[in-house]
Design a protein around this nucleic acid. Structure first.
Lengths: 243, 243
DNA sequence: GGTTCTCACTTGTATTACACTTGTCTATGA
DNA sequence: TCATAGACAAGTGTAATACAAGTGAGAACC
């Protein structure tokens, strides 16, 4: 009976992953090693691995290796990432209005964070029930941004568009006075207190892929952090509208 | 099994920090020494340290060295509760100055949160290197407060004094303009932007036992939320001084 | 005593080099 | 169509090295 080798190998690897032998985050043996072990060519091993990649079980980075994906990740980040989702979830009619969309040279600070020179900068206003409640500026490496049309950005969040790449995020929150630009766009007085959140999102390789700055009018918004000693998982945190 | 050296080293250092071998505020060995000790290049040591810096565990000053930041701590609540601890940990001389200490009738809002009528209200100013950086007001049911003298409150944090009872906390962060009182006490201009954090701490039974309001000058402070899928350790979140 | 200078030591940053990995392509059989 | 073999491009982790720049402490000076 003739069977297809790479399906066999894929099945074998799949069971090894599911059995827990290959834990999430762990590196798989290199293609060369697997090829030697199963006594097949590297191409065949690759076919098997690509099959698993399509299933979302493993992923690879060039020059690094194949590794097992953990299931929880994208979800925990998803809850984090989409501030506008939280709005719609709480019954507020939320809209996105893209006011700027430009490929340009990154300024020094942005260049340092993202590690690239050319970036796509998108500026949006988010409205809740017609009133602006957030001014969002997102910087993204131009290379990644090319595949995103202005319409894409208008309709979906960056976290949706770049979904599978995102891995971790650091968010800093601080209070500041609204700049002239911000005051005008958010329809608040000049120098009114605003909540300024800056988030750096990184991919699996630790490379920063997204720099986002959210500016919220202080009197309208609240950042909530829930901390429970029982749950070790990342505390769910989110933005909340205040009345 | 293939592992990546700098992840190994980072894990090693992380555990040494958590075990208390490397106390908070302490200087780590220099990169050169670590490089010799682990028999890897300085670059590799750096990458490990930078990993830890991203996690908020350590930080470095050029020409000075790497030092442990604060509250590694197995109790996730401890890291949360003791903002002043984080200050001392990062090498800042932090002092507590109690300016008000009174048993009184709770106002409507406080009464609703704590579910009691009589409360102990304590107001403190926290200083960092002599300058005020936080104005803290704590409300606590009078019943619990009776066992706490003014001196207790001055010397220790509420989280230390009520330690074992605390179980979970909800923290809301918002931007606001400084009131006259706050501006005077924090030595900032009237209506300057401040970060206002309100935390409700509950005990094991779900009963609210502490209501705390922290007010930070916006230009001096930063709230950092780290969300990482790779680190199993407690997501370090905390307040960070900015320069 | 107080100020400035110097020097050892630290981190920050940039190179080059090398081994090893995945990504991709072509050619050859079964 | 499937598998093999080989070759090359490109990315990654580590090493070794060099230099810039900040820090702290003590020496030297006024």
């Amino acid at each position: 009976m003739r069977t297809i080798r790479y399906h066999e190998i894929a099945a074998n690897l799949r069971s090894r992953v599911h059995s827990g032998e290959l834990v999430s985050g762990r590196l798989l043996p290199s293609e060369a090693e697997l090829s030697k072990k199963y006594k097949v060519s590297r191409v065949t091993v690759r076919r098997a691995l690509e099959l698993l990649r399509d299933e979302g079980i493993v992923d690879a980075r060039q020059g690094f290796g194949w590794f097992v994906l953990g299931g929880t990740v994208s979800q925990s980040l998803a809850t984090l990432g989409t501030i506008e989702d939280q709005m719609t979830a709480s019954g507020v009619r939320s809209e996105r209005l893209v006011i700027e969309y430009a490929f340009e040279k990154a300024n020094k600070q942005v260049a340092k964070v993202l590690g690239v020179d050319q970036v796509l900068r998108v500026r949006r206003i988010n409205t809740a029930d017609g009133e602006p409640f957030a001014l969002v500026t997102v910087w993204c490496p131009a290379e990644l941004g090319r595949s995103l049309s202005r319409q894409d950005v208008e309709q979906s969040s960056f976290h949706e568009l770049l979904d599978r790449k995102l891995k971790s995020a650091t968010q800093t929150i601080t209070a500041d006075a609204a700049s002239a630009d911000e005051a005008r766009l958010l329809e608040i007085p000049l120098s009114a207190p605003v909540l300024r959140c800056e988030r750096v999102t990184k991919d699996a390789g630790g490379q920063a892929v997204l720099l986002a700055q959210h500016v919220f009018p202080g009197h309208k918004t609240n950042f909530v952090v829930e901390l429970s000693s029982t749950t070790k998982s990342i505390a769910p945190s989110g933005l909340r509208l205040v009345d």
